[in-house]
Amino acid sequence: MADVQMSSAPSARSQRPSGLRSMLYKSETARGYLLLSPALLVMVVGMLIPFTILIAMSFWTRDGFDFDTTMSMANYQTAMDVPIYNAFLARSFWISGITTVATVLLCYPMAYYVAFHVHRNKMLWIILMTLPFWTSYLLRVFSWKVILGYEGVINSGLLGLGLIDAPLEFLLYSQTAVIITLAHAWAAFAILPMYVSLEKIDRSLLEAAADLGDGPARRFFRITLPLSIPGVISATFLIFIPTTGDYITPALVGGPNSPMIGNLIQLQFGAVNNWPMGAALSVILTLWIAAVGLVFLFVTRKSQESVV
């Protein structure tokens, strides 16, 4: 064994460490980038380049069945001027804003319970909480169509029991239905980050607070809640962003009053066939999400500073 090493490392080579093998052995950085490159390639081809072209197309205009590729702000102008676009956007933010607040409020106690009060089979609980998230989104929305429908589970059930005389119309094809469905569909996703940040809290901090004279409520508001804010923030983003762009839920359970910006974008690429307009709406949606996100981050950071 030893002899092999000596012949493989002649003294002449020691002065000039060169060659690809030597470089890779020496430079962890080069090796790291090499390992990352396939994943980055997929992201560049599947995300970065498409998004660049999306932005480019948003400045084009439709010309019959083709595109006029001269740059123009026409689509953005239209989006500003035509009230319906702004209405869709506002409705999207309204619906997903309500959904986000409701989901975070409803999920927080659950995350809290599992983090602080489940001691046996914790793993099973976490899996039970998150399991639905991984299964078909379409089918979970679909199940609400079954439940809320005009002749769905709730209405036919209540009718059968004689509690109502006619089907409750507000249940299906309404914003309420969209909000209920979205909240249910994203609940499992919201729990995880809040659970993680609650689980990380050192229990001795709570014991210290108790020792220093805080009761359960004050302990919660002075220790637990502030320390779990990062989880609440990530949960907020993880629900707000995808729900704002959703179009399946409004299409399946929303009525004429609840199409969202996602439905409008989808229409531009489908029936309306105005791709540049669709691209512009996509860019506008992204910018709005980024703006709302930044404001939210700024506000929460400010308020956290004032707490400390």
Binding site: M1, A2, Q5, S8, A9, S11, S14, P17
Partner: peptide, 19 residues
């Protein structure tokens, strides 16, 4: 600088070939 083990310079020898 340079490390020698049993007379051999080590700078170009990866961990898995060192004695």
């Amino acid at each position: 600088g340079e490390i020698f083990i049993d007379g051999q310079p080590m700078s170009d020898v990866p961990p898995f070939e060192r004695p």
